[in-house]
Design a binder for these strands. Structure first.
Lengths: 334, 334
DNA sequence: ACCAAAATTGGTAGCGCTGCCAAAAAAATC
DNA sequence: GATTTTTTTGGCAGCGCTACCAATTTTGGT
């Protein structure tokens, strides 16, 4: 039993050393299981740790030893489930290896990203994880000067700073277009959210249009909403688009959230899917596969991206671009 | 212009001091804007900082000054959007005040929570934020001994360690039952996910049943699925429940994810909602309000919870339980 | 011009830990 | 039993910064 009242002064390693009747170095070695020590010493140290309720101070440990075992995530959003998924994949691996995840959210603003990267670097993280390749000059300069590993996530269409893990958004856009064309759709529209900020969605759209053009098919119309992607936004956007272009036979959405909104609009307006209108999303969210008609979409390797990113960093893998690919889900909406 | 090649050795404060021709203390004061210094000194320091690309080392700063300005979140899941929402609310406030969020995920397992809390305390955070009141004895002991602030989130039905911010889940369950009873439903069922682990969902269910019982209405049947809540899970569960109890006129779901799944089952099976079957969720997710019929549910103060939790911690507010309440959304499914 | 008060500045002792080294103890060898 | 080899151990100098204090410069008042 340890004492239960709140301790004024936190227990330090040297107090443990004294209580155990050994030197500080011995305590340090035992606790990190590093270097050599006798079984007896080990026992006395662990006993003292238990008795005093000692919790090592990693701030001090880090300062003394260099490696922080902190991995910083600077991500655009927590609302878009994509990023929590990546965090989840990375978190599991990091934790197993005794790394800690630190994060902050940019709201898709490059200037905020720059400020947050600066704040993160102050913790001397082992690695910084960012979304995509579009960063300010300041961000690039800081990251390069920092000497810490950098992983750019969920995109491989561009020049990586160091490591990149993800898939080709442009290719995903192309694959989506090819699928719709193969199915015979020709009067195609697009519904998207703010593309200046979500550059990965922009790249998909580029790939999509490129393939349409190459096939001699013109994108009939597009509806691009300001602000973040959301189901409500997608629903309103499709309604708007159809008002302008009622003859469309297929719509490509910037992602599944938007597409689900579109699907709900069709359900509400009794527009039969895909007979009258086909819908195509992006991401392959679980919810899109639980709707009455599963969404036709592209499943992206979000958790795997996080996982691999963490592994590369932990193993200090040399600079590298990893393409995890994607998978087209032939649902029932296109 | 600074040099662009990777710096072998990171720049330290004393190098800045030398380059600026001032003492270390002056650099420190200027950078923290704390204590007094002349305009000329300020200028020279900032100039040197810029020239050398100096990034302060907060590890060292923290060790020297005590306060870590780190806030640790130990949350059950990132998949359940509830927690990213809380993080989002807290993140904004923390960032403004130059705190950093650190997090790890317990998967709803108390033992993992204990291990993760221990790991977090090693960073000497200003506060630890946890979900709910159910913790192991070890977790409680560590937290109490740590001397750092503790916030328990999204629950107020229990005894708080220090601070608690959220709403009464039991009360939410009661309100849900009252609503269904008031609307005249009497053949009521329940669809839930693993309640041993998600104790807050369990408390809602308790409050729900209590109110039914008090009104002399018996819960007809329930379907409880192992594993996490998800739309797919909810869909399968409702199907199963209706097979056993086809005469139900209303179903209460453990949360909106499950309820959406139920709604999709009804759409797919042409069960008219709410005429033939009423559905009631919990959380008030945006997506539930964008479906053809908006979900009848309870909106919970997730972002506000995160926000207030962060504010209380930053202002070092005395121990306190804050009830942020909830709001019943009369959608179209009940 | 002189002295007191205020503003500015630099030196230095830690913060709690790890890494290195040399000393001490234990084990192995002849 | 003496000597070498191996294992275990403790002391102590930092890691980069902040807090404190004393020294210096500037300012203001007379």
């Amino acid at each position: 039993m340890t004492t239960d009242f709140k301790q004024q002064t936190t227990v330090t390693l040297s107090e443990v050393a004294e209580a155990a009747g050994v030197g500080e170095s011995t305590v340090s070695r035992v606790l990190r299981n590093h270097g050599s020590f006798s079984g007896k010493a080990r026992e006395r140290v662990l006993d003292a740790v238990e008795r005093l309720g000692y919790v090592p101070n990693r701030i001090a440990g880090t300062l003394a030893s260099a490696g922080s075992r902190l991995v910083a995530f600077v991500i655009p959003s927590l609302t878009n489930i994509v990023f929590p998924d990546v965090l989840r994949g990375a978190g599991a691996v990091l934790e197993e290896n005794h790394y800690q995840a630190v994060f902050s959210v940019t709201d898709y603003e490059p200037e905020r990203e720059e400020a947050l990267v600066a704040a993160m670097l102050a913790w001397r993280p082992t690695a910084v994880m960012l979304a995509g390749f579009e960063h300010t000059g300041g961000t690039l300069k800081m990251l390069r000067a920092s000497g810490c590993r950098v992983v750019e996530l969920l995109d491989i269409d561009g020049i990586a700073i160091d490591l990149a893990v993800g898939f080709s958004n442009r290719e995903a856009g192309r694959a989506s277009a090819e699928f719709l064309l193969k199915r015979g759709y020709r009067r195609i529209g697009y519904v998207g959210h703010d593309l200046d900020r979500d550059t990965r969605a922009g790249k998909r759209f580029d790939g999509f249009r490129e393939t349409l053009n190459r096939a001699g098919v013109r994108l009939v119309d597009r509806e691009i909403r300001a602000g973040a992607s959301s189901v409500g936004n997608g629903r309103a956007a499709l309604e708007q688009l159809l008002r302008r272009a009622p003859g469309l036979d297929a719509v490509y959405f910037s992602n599944d959230d938007m597409a689900l909104g579109g699907y709900f609009h069709c359900l509400a307006d009794a527009i039969s899917v895909p007979t009258r209108l086909a819908l195509f999303g992006h991401n392959g969210l679980d919810i899109g596969q639980a709707t009455p008609q599963p969404l036709t979409t592209i499943r992206t390797p979000r958790v795997a991206t996080g996982k691999l990113a963490a592994e590369l960093v932990i193993n200090d893998h040399p600079s590298h671009v990893a393409d995890l690919g994607f998978e087209l889900i032939e649902g029932a909406t296109a």
